[in-house]
Simulated scan of single mutants.
Amino acid sequence: MTDAVGSGAVPAHDVIRVLVADDQAIIRDGLVTVLSLLPDVEIVGEAADGEQAARLAVEWHPDVVLMDLRMPVLDGVGATERIVREVPGSAIIVLTTFADDDSILAALRAGAKGYLTKDAGRAEVAAAIRAVARGQSTFAPAVGALLVSTLTGASAAPAVPGGGATSADAVLTRFPSLTAREADVLALIADGLSNGEIAARLFVSIATVKTHINAIFAKLAVRDRAQAIALVRS
């Protein structure tokens, strides 16, 4: 675990000052490296847990905080609540692996202005930073769809034209070792969608879909899609 690092440089007025908070050093370092290449972004601090994030936000008053949810000492929701209360000029973007109903709603209630999953590309993260710095809210398309379905009480399982969709909730109940996103992918596999169709439906890359499928096959001890489909339908 690394200590929090701050920078005392004062950027020009048109530069967005960003604080990155993530307990995984490799992800935090990657975000810092990528965002440092943007001409209108300056990284003013890094934090390895929510307590450090809140403390650095009070110290440096960043325009935007990229906030992981699952962190030690103080989680991302708690850190978001503190920053929103103590540094109201800082906008929070949650950047996390978790895109489930509870995580989204908890982050929004805490005051987050954006919610992205960690498979977001550099352009998507950059656009989100610029949007919240202008006072807008921003969500990944898949997160927005899940949020709408949650608020309206509708099922979050994607519908497949021409037939009844397999429920991702039902898949997750039957196979609790899966993550919520893996359950989404498995439900779409069971409905006969290709990797490209799943990627388009979930607004992620095909490479991300393949990663989820490999994880699903390993967790369920199946060799291929046919076995996975048979297991879901059994």
Rank of each mutant, 00 (worst) to 15 (best):
G162V: 01
R233V: 01
G163Q: 14
V222F: 07
A168W: 02
I104V: 12
R134S: 10
N214F: 10
T166A: 04
A165L: 02
V58Y: 10
L105P: 03
T173Y: 11
A126Y: 09
A9T: 11
G76W: 03
A165F: 07
S7A: 03
P62T: 07
A145I: 10
S36D: 15
L172G: 10
I92S: 05
E197W: 01
S90A: 15
R174K: 13
F203N: 15
A126Q: 07
P72I: 08
A133Q: 04
D184K: 02
L116Y: 05
L193Y: 09
Q136K: 12
T117E: 09
S194K: 06
G30R: 07
I216H: 09
R225Y: 08
A159C: 04
A215E: 12
A228E: 05
A48W: 08
S194V: 01
V209A: 02
A226K: 14
A156Q: 11
E81A: 15
V32T: 10
A221W: 04
D224M: 01
L147H: 12
A57T: 13
A128V: 03
D3L: 11
E124V: 06
H61C: 10
E81Q: 15
P161D: 02
H61E: 15
S194Y: 12
A128F: 09
L56F: 15
Q52T: 13
V132F: 04
D23G: 00
S155F: 01
F217M: 04
R181Y: 03
A12N: 13
A180E: 06
P72D: 08
L172H: 15
M1C: 08
T152H: 06
A226N: 12
N214L: 04
R122A: 07
L66K: 02
V160C: 02
T138A: 09
A218D: 12
D29P: 02
A168T: 09
D40Y: 08
M71N: 11
R109Q: 15
F98E: 10
K210L: 11
P88V: 11
R70T: 13
W60C: 12
R223M: 04
K113T: 13
D14N: 11
R70K: 15
A131I: 02
G45L: 01
L38W: 04
V34I: 13
I27C: 04
A183S: 15
A54K: 07
A145Y: 13
L95T: 05
L202G: 06
R130E: 00
A79C: 06
A230D: 12
V77Y: 09
I26Y: 08
D102I: 10
L146S: 09
I16R: 00
G45N: 04
F217G: 01
D191H: 02
T173I: 06
A21Y: 07
A120I: 01
T138C: 08
